[in-house]
């Protein structure tokens, strides 16, 4: 039993997180679903686009649906370069959204792929200003290293383009990041099914962030629960260390047995 009771927490920006599932706020048919999604997903981190926050209208402000114990992760959705991302991050902090920031610099509106160079620049500036920076990125080892050097608190590689639900298309590249980057690797974007999230966790991702798979499903609350279970199962499997995978069956009559000392 003791091995099950061992503490397994993720620490980011000095905060201990028991849940390794981060969720988003976009695409819901109603923001009123958010509290229940949070509860059923067990998630302790939620990302919100600053562009959607309306502080002049507290009743309709998306923030009002987020319980206080949940870590707010404002994101820089809409930023086309580092300069815009930096300004959005500063606005979020001044507006009282805390010092965590998910950097999204997207200068490609067709595939919504992140701009690595501009993301590194924004990370460097914001980390120096005391932000806990979580940059969204394409899983490129050199970009990830630069982000780590620039002061990122974690890196968030995409599994597939945002909103596509296509799963871990970049699996091998993410695996390299998990192996080489001394920061939590949080798989962000592309996760469409609980099995995708489970797969990411099994290979050693620190956490998963997803939105479309829950928000655009027919039953977001039920899907949130499914993802909670999948992320937990994947993490447990990673900690338990899965067995060796072999392409061949283990021969029942080994070919080199004749070399063993003969039994008398």
């Amino acid at each position: 039993m003791s091995e099950i009771k061992d503490k397994d927490v993720l620490v980011i920006g000095g905060r201990e997180l028991k849940s390794r599932l981060f969720v988003g706020t976009g695409k819901y048919a109603s923001d009123a679903l958010i509290p229940e999604v949070l509860e059923q997903s067990g998630s302790e981190v939620i990302t919100v686009a600053l562009r959607r926050m309306d502080f002049n209208n507290p009743k309709d402000n998306i923030i009002s649906y987020i319980p206080e114990h949940v870590q707010l992760l404002p994101n820089t959705s809409g930023a086309r370069n580092a300069d815009e991302a930096i300004r959005i991050a500063r606005l979020a902090r001044v507006a009282g959204c805390g010092n965590w920031i998910k950097i999204e610099v997207i200068s490609d509106n067709k595939y919504l792929l992140p701009d690595g160079y501009e993301t590194i620049k924004a990370t460097e500036v914001l980390a120096k200003e005391g932000f806990v920076v979580l940059p969204y990125m394409s899983p490129d080892l050199m970009v990830a290293k630069s982000l780590a050097d620039a002061g990122a608190a974690a890196v968030m590689p995409l599994g597939a383009p945002i909103g596509t639900n296509r799963g871990l298309k970049t699996k091998e590249l993410i695996r390299i990041l998990i192996q080489e980057i001394p920061l939590p690797i949080i798989v962000d974007a592309g996760i469409g099914k609980p099995s995708h999230a489970c797969e990411a966790m099994e290979m050693g991702a620190a956490a998963c962030l997803l939105n479309t798979a829950i928000a655009a499903s027919d039953k977001p609350v039920l899907m949130a629960q499914a993802f909670k279970n999948a992320v937990k199962a994947g993490r447990q499997a990673y900690l338990a260390k899965t067995g060796k995978v072999s392409d061949e069956a283990q021969a029942s009559s080994p070919l080199t047995d004749f070399l063993l000392p003969k039994k008398v």
Binding site: Y28, A29, S30, D31, L50, R51, R52, M53, D54, F55, N56, N57, P58, D60, G78, A79, E84, R87, I88, L91, V94, A95, G96
Partner: peptide, 23 residues
């Protein structure tokens, strides 16, 4: 969901007024 706000002015002169009102 009817969305009323999906942008935030981020020009250099933004006085943050829209964010600060009500805070």
């Amino acid at each position: 969901q009817p969305v009323l706000k999906d942008w935030e002015k981020i020009d250099k002169d933004n006085s943050l007024d829209s964010c600060l009102v009500g805070k």
